[in-house]
């Protein structure tokens, strides 16, 4: 499995400085907002498939972050993971309140990139199959896969975002990959 690097010490120190500044004065939150807006918007959009709703939930995410920035304790976890956790909670809250199905809207260019990175022999006709197999996974499993491959998060960050242990996050990801492999093997044998 491809390794997504953690942040460097320099980057973490810089983030810590930004958080300290924002804790002193909320006006300094601007830089955190600018740095992470696109990333969080894309994440929310991927989970809602609705541009206006994604804009609302992203705004709500940053508002919650701004309201709680003073309570944020620096423990070496990047601020983006904290924002992802808030966004994830806001998305879940929305789907619980509306009683709708959770959505995973996956972009074709990203799927192709992941396939290219895996360096496996992939035929174009396998993409619809992948979509079908992904829908057979549990929501917990697909959430971990999404964070891992589409958001390119490492397991430490995934564990923090989903409020589970790091080993739990790894277990979910490997179990999901095993299931996908199994589905593909069954399909290959059939054809």
């Amino acid at each position: 499995m491809k390794q997504y690097p953690s942040m460097s010490q320099q980057e973490l120190t810089d983030e810590e400085r930004l958080i300290r500044l924002a804790q002193v004065d909320p006006k300094n939150f601007n830089e955190i907002y600018d740095r992470h807006f696109d990333q969080i918007f894309n994440f929310v959009y991927r989970r809602t498939d609705d541009e206006d709703l994604a804009a609302d939930l992203t705004s709500q995410t940053f508002l919650k972050a701004l309201q709680n920035i003073r309570r944020f304790e620096w423990k070496g976890i990047p601020v983006s993971a904290w924002l992802y956790r808030i966004a994830s909670n806001e998305i879940n809250k929305y789907f619980r309140a509306t009683n709708k199905n959770i959505i995973f809207s996956l972009e074709e260019p990203l799927i192709h990139k992941i396939i290219e990175d895996s360096q496996e022999d992939w035929a174009e006709d396998k993409v619809p199959l992948l979509i079908d197999y992904l829908s057979r996974l549990t929501t917990d499993e697909i959430t971990v896969l999404e964070l891992r491959f589409f958001e390119e998060k490492n397991f430490k960050d995934i564990a923090f975002i989903l409020e589970i242990s790091e080993s739990g996050a790894k277990m979910r990801a490997y179990r999901a990959i095993d299931k996908l492999k199994e589905y593909f093997n069954i399909n290959t044998k059939k054809s």
């Binding site: 909320p26 601007n30 804009a55 705004s59 701004l66 199905n101 996956l106 697909i142």
Partner: peptide, 29 residues
């Protein structure tokens, strides 16, 4: 088990389109 739908999008959201929704002053207000 929670229900979920998998959807397939042809294109990634462009940065310019995301910028339309960015408004720090409104957030601060």
């Amino acid at each position: 088990m929670t229900r979920h739908d998998i959807r397939f999008r042809r294109q990634t959201m462009s940065s310019g389109r995301i910028q339309k929704h960015k408004n720090y002053q409104a957030l601060l207000q």
